[in-house]
Nucleic acid binder design. Structure first.
Lengths: 102, 102
DNA sequence: CAGTATCCCGGCAGATACTG
DNA sequence: CAGTATCTGCCGGGATACTG
């Protein structure tokens, strides 16, 4: 029943931030706490709209970011980190620090 | 010349530990400092021999693990974390902690 | 503006067989 | 034991067009 991978939750945890663009999105949202869809696009121009939408959806599903939708015309959305997402800050910074040092 | 992604090194850094099996391998090598190829296979049974070899090669290339080859018969190898790899310990633990809390 | 739908291709990764 | 070689199928992700 219990598989090895489940005993090693680091894998599951890492998946939540290691999608093709997730870390960058989180990183950007740490710098820019409130972002609209197109703002994120401009901040991460290499990421296609399709992928941005998909990754945002996963991040939202995993409770790392939250999305506020304003049903105005034209439509407006705002993405920001949840409390859970913000708690990643020291970890992300630790990673950066590690990357910088080597 | 300079692309956005290069200004955001977290992405590069994360890639070094977010291959399909890298985090698990690092994790296992933190628990078991010296591992032979087949030992790692047994510790991570869901990972094919092919993938294990590929991921190990990348980890070695990135300087996270080192490989010692003993030209005996039958051949014997030993994988372990480098100093650089060991420095990831607090980060990995931070990730685990974050994953545990939520 | 903020996405979704659809088509399509290259490359990731499994299975299997082989080697020093 | 510790890998590599090859073949193949699948799906991640780009490009483009469309929608509320």
């Amino acid at each position: 029943m219990t598989k090895q991978v489940e005993d090693c939750p680091i894998e599951t945890t890492l998946k939540q931030i290691s999608g093709k663009w997730k870390s960058v999105i989180i990183f950007r949202l740490l710098e820019h706490p409130q972002c609209r869809f197109n703002e994120l696009q401009k901040l991460i121009p290499e990421c296609s709209r399709r992928m941005l939408a998909l990754q945002l959806k996963e991040l939202e599903h995993d409770g790392l970011i939250s999305k506020t939708f304003y049903p105005v015309v034209p439509p407006k959305t705002e993405y920001s980190l949840t409390e859970r997402g913000k708690k990643l800050k020291p970890v992300i910074e630790g990673l950066q620090e590690w990357g910088r040092i080597n």
